[in-house]
Write a protein that binds this DNA or RNA. Structure first.
Length: 134
DNA sequence: TTTTTGACTCTGA
DNA sequence: ATCAGAGCCAAAA
């Protein structure tokens, strides 16, 4: 049958926002992880699309950062995102979250964080090249 | 409906 | 460390 998700719970955007609200204060998550939690692994970019309109206080969209601990984007001045994160006790570098692995949420690795990019074509295993310095 | 855009991510140079 | 290229996904035009 034609699966049309007119219901907010069914909407991708709603699931993304719900996942973001689950991020505890003082923790951060990535677009990719949120996508997986929302049931759409590999849709990191789409998560950004949703968060782009997240200019409200209902969802802690500032806790969503890019992979590797990069700050990611922000609708307004990126400085606001830093300030918010710092306000929760997270040390933020000019361009990265310090001790990203420590503040990351969820703490456990996700079931299927599909590499889903250039890696797939190469077909090779990807190296843990998450360069970060604490 | 098709095409374009964009708070992404990874690999390779 | 930094830049460019390629792939993926969903929403907006």
């Amino acid at each position: 049958m034609a699966n049309r998700p007119p219901q907010p719970e069914r909407r991708f955007a709603a699931r993304v926002l719900a996942a973001v609200r689950r991020i505890p204060a003082g923790r951060v998550s990535t677009y990719g992880d949120i996508a997986t939690l929302a049931g759409a692994p590999g849709a990191a970019r789409a998560v950004g699309t949703v968060l782009r309109s997240c200019g409200d206080g209902a969802t802690p969209c500032h806790r969503v950062v890019a992979a590797g601990g990069a700050l990611g984007g922000w609708t307004g001045p990126l400085e606001f995102k830093r300030v918010r994160l710092r306000g929760e006790g997270i040390s933020v570098d000019l361009a990265r979250v310090q001790e990203f692995g420590r503040h990351r949420w969820p703490p456990s690795h996700l079931p299927a964080a599909r590499p889903g990019k250039a890696g797939r074509q190469a077909g090779r295993q990807r190296s843990p090249t998450l360069a970060r310095k604490g």
